[in-house]
């Protein structure tokens, strides 16, 4: 299950995003233990040192916490996860906006498109 990485961002940042998304989705539940550094390295197809750095940065942002001798765990603080979800969503919103701008589509049309997609594909309203 190796991840596709882009060329212009450090891998640890991309791996941070990947794990953050899994946490937001609930794929990694609050309080759940993250895979060990080595297992995550094999799964993601990256260097174990990169995974250590990723876990350290996630810990600094309080998204995970490491417990001595036990491993690294997803935070149980719902507010942290909610904040993370909002910031991840904001990044995606920025991306959407800039792609629309590149296509020369104005705000109103973009909103309309978004609404159509939502209605057609369903999803939480």
């Amino acid at each position: 299950m190796s991840i596709e990485f882009n060329d212009y961002q450090p891998i640890y940042q991309q791996l941070m995003d990947h794990i953050s998304q899994r946490i937001c989705r609930g794929d990694l539940a609050p309080g759940e233990k993250l895979p060990s550094v080595r297992v995550m390295a094999v799964e993601a197809g990256v260097n174990p040192n990169t995974v250590s750095r990723t876990y350290m940065e996630l810990e600094r942002e309080k998204i995970v916490e490491s417990r001595r001798g036990q491993g690294t765990f997803v935070t149980e603080e719902k507010t942290v996860i909610e904040k993370l979800r909002k910031s991840q969503a904001a990044v995606q919103a920025d991306r959407f906006k800039s792609s629309m701008e590149q296509l020369g589509i104005d705000k109103e049309t973009a909103f309309q498109l978004l609404e159509n997609t939502w209605d057609r594909n369903g999803g939480a309203s």
């Binding site: 060329d7 212009y8 450090p10 891998i11 640890y12």
Partner: peptide, 11 residues
């Protein structure tokens, strides 16, 4: 490599 990507943003 990480430092390279951070500063130069290239593969």
């Amino acid at each position: 490599v990480e430092e390279l990507k951070e500063t130069e943003r290239k593969s």
